[in-house]
Structures are given as C-alpha cells and as structure tokens.
Simulated assay, not measured.
Amino acid sequence: MGYYVKVEPDVKIYVEDVNPKGNKTILFIHGWPANHNLFEYQFNQLPKKGYRCIGMDIRGFGNSDKPWEGYDYNRLADDVRCVVEALKLKDFTLAGHSVGGAIAIRYMARHNGYGVSKLALFAAAAPSFTRRPNFPYGLPKEEVTKLIQGTYTDRPKMLQGFGDMFFFQNTTCPFSDWFFQLGLQGAGWSTAALATTLRDESLFPDLGKICVPTLILHGIHDKVSLFPLAIVQNRGIKNSKLVPFKYSGHGLFWEERDKFNMELTQFIEN
C-alpha cells in the first residue's frame, strides 16, 4: 500500500506500507542516494513474521516530491515527525541506514523520540560522516566534495562509482543495475544537497539524548560509513548494542540479509 503524506504546504512524502495489520511496526529510513526500495530484502521477509514495515522516501528521492530546499537534518527529522503523526504510529521501531540513521538520531533528539520504543541504526552516518579536527574517524571532506561535484557534472558516472564502493561482496550485473536505478530516481539537486548535509553537519550532542534501547548493525568492511563510527555510536548511546557484520560493507541489509533480519527481529522481540 502506497500513499503520500504532506509535510509542508507544497511537499509530499511517499510512504510504502507493507502489511498494515502487522503486530509490530518498523519505520525504515533509507540511505543516500536511494529510496525505500533499498529495504526490499526486509520487506520480502519481515511481514511474514507479522511485522508492519513502513518505508518512507526522503524528500528529493524515490517517489517523494523534490523541492529545491529542505535537506538539512532538522527539516528531514521534521518530515519523519509528519509521517509518524499522519500514520498515528506509537510504540514503533525507528530504523535508519546511513544518512537515514543520522536523520533517525536527529529525530530522537529533536522530537524527544516521539512514538519510538526502540531505535535501530544500520551503517549510520553519525555522529559525523566526515573527519573533523577532533574526530578522525569519518571520510575526508574532500571525498564527499568529489561526490557532490560528480553529481553536477556526470551523475550516472558518480552513482556507478558509489555503487562500486557500497558493497563488500560481489554483486551480479543485474543487481548493480537495479541499485544504480535507485539512485537515478532522485533529483540531481537533492542528491547534491543531501551529500552537502552529510559533509557539513554533525550529531555529537544528539547521541546522549537517546533514551530507548538501540541496536547498531555495521559492516566491518564499510568504505562509506567507516566502522569506527559504529564504535563511537555505541559509546555515546546509552543502552546500545553493537553487532559487527564480518562479511559486509555498507550494504549489510543485502550482503548478510539473513543475519540482518534475525538480529533486527530478535532485538524488537526481546
């Protein structure tokens, strides 16, 4: 079931609601530069176990509207709040991958975890996606700037290059093309704007404001959100659990999908 939620007078967010009658709800926020279809291998399986799986397309991506502005963490967290209120979600698990994890963390801090009973972070781009003077764990800012420049000069080439660093395990050509098409569904300006947010914004104070049980899943071979970020998250978030994925890069939800789904469901049930 797919529908739209108005988050601003002229901006609507697309929401895919799989198994609306499920007993427990998970709201998924995808990473850059894809859309909710990134979680296909969760939506295929988790509803069989009775879960309601909701995937929202971040503004500018997938089937959502693509406004010129609104790609900072505060506005994106506010978009999540609009979806939560429109769907009247309560006692749900908020799950975010990469920049979606960063947005989830900002939501927890900015909206006091409204409606959230548990938080799940997958290769989250937090507390800082890029290196800073007192934070040597992220990507060099220059690498993210190259992605932004590539978006403006040859976005298909940039997306293909990003896809090559996304997965640790080998992918088939059809799968790589599918992943590539997800990125093409975003607008160029939103792809660049969200990458700029990834490069420039941070969430250091937000970690300490999270008060719900938190699961951190992270591939040890991640070349996008480097594994040390997960260690920092684990140290900064009270009542959090870190599970390393030994055979995954940034795409652990596909590369070790059976383990991924098992860890997520066990976390929700316990």
Results as ranks from 00 to 15, higher is better:
2 G>S: 14
45 Q>R: 10
31 G>D: 03
138 G>R: 05
265 T>I: 00
16 E>S: 05
145 T>R: 11
77 A>C: 10
27 L>H: 06
211 C>N: 13
206 D>S: 05
221 H>A: 08
54 I>N: 03
254 W>M: 09
245 F>V: 00
10 D>Y: 13
47 P>Q: 04
221 H>Q: 13
136 P>M: 11
52 R>D: 13
119 L>A: 04
261 N>Q: 15
133 P>V: 01
42 Q>F: 07
72 D>M: 02
235 R>S: 03
129 F>H: 01
32 W>T: 07
68 W>F: 15
94 L>H: 02
130 T>V: 14
126 A>L: 03
123 A>H: 15
245 F>D: 02
238 K>I: 00
242 L>T: 12
153 T>S: 15
209 K>A: 01
182 L>Q: 13
236 G>E: 07
170 N>D: 13
182 L>A: 06
197 T>C: 03
66 K>I: 08
97 H>Y: 14
91 D>K: 15
42 Q>S: 07
181 Q>W: 12
198 L>R: 04
192 A>R: 04
117 S>E: 14
203 L>H: 02
153 T>R: 10
98 S>I: 01
215 L>W: 01
205 P>Y: 00
139 L>K: 04
196 T>K: 02
238 K>N: 09
39 F>M: 09
146 K>M: 14
57 D>Q: 07
222 D>R: 00
233 Q>T: 07
16 E>Y: 03
37 N>F: 06
33 P>K: 07
38 L>M: 12
1 M>Q: 08
22 G>S: 08
91 D>G: 15
22 G>H: 08
132 R>D: 10
165 M>C: 04
15 V>H: 02
226 L>Y: 10
245 F>S: 00
15 V>S: 04
108 M>W: 01
224 V>S: 10
241 K>N: 05
134 N>Y: 11
267 F>I: 00
207 L>G: 03
111 H>T: 00
42 Q>P: 06
162 F>M: 09
47 P>F: 06
264 L>D: 03
37 N>W: 07
69 E>K: 15
48 K>S: 15
169 Q>F: 12
85 E>M: 14
194 L>W: 01
95 A>S: 09
98 S>N: 07
102 A>K: 02
15 V>I: 12
82 C>Y: 08
58 I>K: 04
74 N>K: 13
48 K>V: 10
82 C>H: 14
81 R>C: 07
114 Y>A: 13
153 T>I: 13
108 M>V: 02
180 F>T: 04
174 P>Q: 12
218 H>P: 11
87 L>Q: 09
116 V>T: 08
204 F>E: 05
194 L>C: 00
34 A>E: 13
30 H>S: 08
266 Q>C: 01
164 D>Q: 13
220 I>C: 06
222 D>E: 06
55 G>I: 07
6 K>I: 14
270 N>V: 01
103 I>R: 04
138 G>Q: 11
218 H>A: 11
257 R>I: 15
55 G>S: 11
125 A>K: 00
21 K>Y: 09
218 H>E: 11
42 Q>C: 05
106 R>E: 04
43 F>G: 06
259 K>Q: 15
40 E>H: 09
130 T>Y: 06
